[in-house]
Every structure is written in C-alpha cells, then in structure tokens.
Design a protein around this nucleic acid. Structure first.
Lengths: 203, 203
DNA sequence: TAATATTTTTAACAAATGTTAAAAATATTC
DNA sequence: GAATATTTTTAACATTTGTTAAAAATATTA
C-alpha cells in the first residue's frame, strides 16, 4: 500500500505502472519468477467509485494499482477513518484477509478510473511453497508494507495535523486537489471543520 | 516494585517460553529448520532496565522474549510514546533496522529481568536464500507482525482511552500493576493526568 | 523504622478541537 | 447556462484534554 515510489510525469498525464514494476518495487525478481506471478494475475479496468475490498467480506486476493487512485479506510457504525491513499505502483491488500482467510478491517475504494492487477492468493500461496525467490519476494512485500504502515503511524503520533497537511500538499499536490476534504481530514485525524481552519491559516 | 513483584512471586508464575515455541508461534516449522535457526541464536540473561534496541543505533538482529517484560517506545526531543508492551513469546524487532540495515524508530527496554534469544540477522538472511521453509517462516513473521501492529492502530483509532485501559486491565492484570502509569498513559495516547481521571472514574 | 525519593492523584485554569447549523463556493446534471 | 446537488467555509458554543503545580500515596534506602 502507500503512495508509490514512482516519479510522476507531467501534470495531467496519466501514470501507468507495469505489473512487473509493481513486483520489482518490493524486491528484485528473476524473469522466470516474474512470469510465474504474471500467470496468476488478471488485469481489470475499474470505474471510479468501484469497491475493491470490503471489511465485511473475505478478500484474500492482492491487487496492484497500475493507474488511478485508491483510498483505504476503516469504518464503524458512526465513523469512517481514512488510513491511506494509494497511487500507481502501490499494493491494495487486506492483510488480515490475505493471511487468515477471514474478513479484514479495511475497505478499499477507487477514487478514479483505475487499472488494477488481481493476484490469486491461493495460487500465490502454492508458488510460495515451490519457488524460493517468490517466497522471499512475498516476505519482502510484508516487511516493506509493515515499514510503510509504521511510518504512517509515526507521522500521526509525532506530527501535528497542520504539519501533515503541509507534507501532503508538498508531496502530492496533483492528488490532494482531487480528494474530498472529509477524506483528508479523517486521514489527518481531525474533523473537517478543523482542516478548514488549518487551510485558512496556511493559505 | 514492591506490591506487584510480591504478587507475582506469590503466584509463582514466571512464564518461560522455549525458543522453538517462539518460532512456532508464527508458523509450523520442521525440526531440521528449527535446528538451523537455533544454531544462529544466542541466549541472553538481561537485567531489568536493560536497553535492547535504541532508535539511534543500527540494530539488525531480532530478539525473542522467553521470559520477562519489554516496552517498545518512540522518542523525540520532547516526548516519548509507548507503542507496545511485549510479554513472553513475543518478538522484539526494529523492522526498519532489520530490513534496511539503518537506524529504526523504536527503543526497546526491558521492564523486568528477562531471558531473550538473539538471532543473528545476517545469518538469518543467508538461511532465507537456501531454506524455503525458513523463507516462508520469515514471511509469516512479517505478515503476522503487520497484523498485530494493525490491530494496535485500529484499537487506538476506534476505542477510547478508557475502553483501551479496561482492555489492558483485563488482558494483562499481572503486568499492568507493575508498569508506571506514565508509560501506560502514553500507550493509551493521553496524558498521565487524564489516565488518573479515567482510573478515578472506573474504580 | 525513619528519612528520602518516586509515583500518583487532585485542583485550577487555559487552549484546542469537536459539534451543529447556516452560508458560501464549487461541481454536476439536464 | 440555469437549476440542483455537493462540498467547503465560517460562526457560536460546549466539551474535552493538556498544563502546571501542589498534595497525597507509595516505594526505596539507610
């Protein structure tokens, strides 16, 4: 998950990341193993507002976002909290579902028309048992996703909402303008009213 | 720590987890692979208040806590935030350091005299390349640590400090009484004064 | 056990943020 | 492009939590 590490082209141009680059984003992989992973992948064209993963459904498969934009959020009866925005090259996964075959916590929606690759979990688990390069790639994926999640946690613990908003603006101006303030506010951990106040101070 | 310690000794319940059980906590492992892991492990007897991992040092190795109690925390110039308490059977790791060989975020101290096993990261990485069972065990470790961290995040996002304190009390009554309120307060994400108010309400 | 040090609770006040509701701005649809 | 719907900002007020400092309780040391 997370904002991909890929540099953006000119504003307005649509970023498209290849599936192989999504894989290699975690770890070097030899061509044979890449081919094996591609064979258990399926390309999907999804419309804006599609729901990829729902917290009440078992969603074992992994998605790689080739283009578009996604939002990851948790939900209770009365609240919805945005955990992350994911840009092309990023991974969309409900780790709990992927690991335990049970419903996870996260909902994942697409905020834009997107291209995603779906990897069949069952077939991936089979590859883990037979291909040590893929097993280590899968290890690396979990490790790096852990670190990304940890960085988000750290940022939320130690930086003010104002600092984090400024960071977002600087790092991803092209996306922020397309995302509803309510989503951003819940990502920052404040109410939308407070985010409006922050914006009024900054601008 | 008088009162808590007394209770503990009286109950005669010092928990000790074997190294093999620490390993198997993540995933089944065959005896041959367990043996390989044990060969790169070192048993350490550590005193209360020992520092295992410091955020400003590279600490690549992993520790398994066989007995005792540990605290994981992040620190800045003006604040210290407790992330987790770890009880026997748990793993002590600075994931960023373990993965990237760079200083991580976490400090880990022992709150009690403890027995820990240290696993040499370099040798572990070598095993990952040659033993597919260990590679998948390492994958499982990262995946399950991710899920544990996610659960902590979820709990902090959706439960009140009061609810989380009640949970702690129920889950680790024997430990909580031995931990300073300041540590618990920062784990809950409130000031110590607020935690005192919570306790006054509950009791 | 007395003396000292540490930890926890309480009190008073200040500051920050949430809530509700209405107005303004912007986007979408026909 | 006008009408409608959605999103964002602003205002007023209430509530929560943090801060500081002192008192009380508990633990440690000699």
């Amino acid at each position: 998950m997370g904002w991909g590490n890929f540099t953006f082209r000119k504003m307005g141009e649509k970023v498209v990341i290849s599936l192989a680059d999504c894989f290699q984003g975690y770890h070097f992989l030899n061509p044979v193993s890449i081919d094996r992973l591609e064979q258990i992948s399926e390309k999907l064209n999804c419309k804006r507002n599609s729901v990829l993963i729902r917290q009440d459904k078992i969603q074992k498969d992994i998605y790689f976002l080739a283009s578009g934009l996604a939002r990851v959020y948790y939900e209770t009866a009365d609240r919805q909290i945005t955990l992350d925005f994911v840009s092309p090259g990023g991974t969309l996964i409900s780790m709990n579902s992927y690991v335990h075959d049970t419903p996870g916590y996260e909902n994942i929606d697409l905020l834009e028309d997107s291209i995603v690759y779906k990897i069949d979990q069952k077939k991936l688990f089979t590859l883990y048992e037979s291909d040590i390069a893929i097993a280590n790639w899968g290890r690396k994926m979990a490790e790096l996703e852990f670190i990304k999640a940890e960085q988000r946690t750290m940022s939320k613990l130690f930086n003010t909402a104002q600092e984090r908003y400024a960071e977002l603006l600087e790092k991803y101006p092209q996306y922020i303008q397309r995302i509803k303030l309510g989503y951003i506010a819940s990502y920052l951990g404040v109410s939308q009213v407070t985010l409006s106040r922050i914006r009024a101070n900054i601008l």
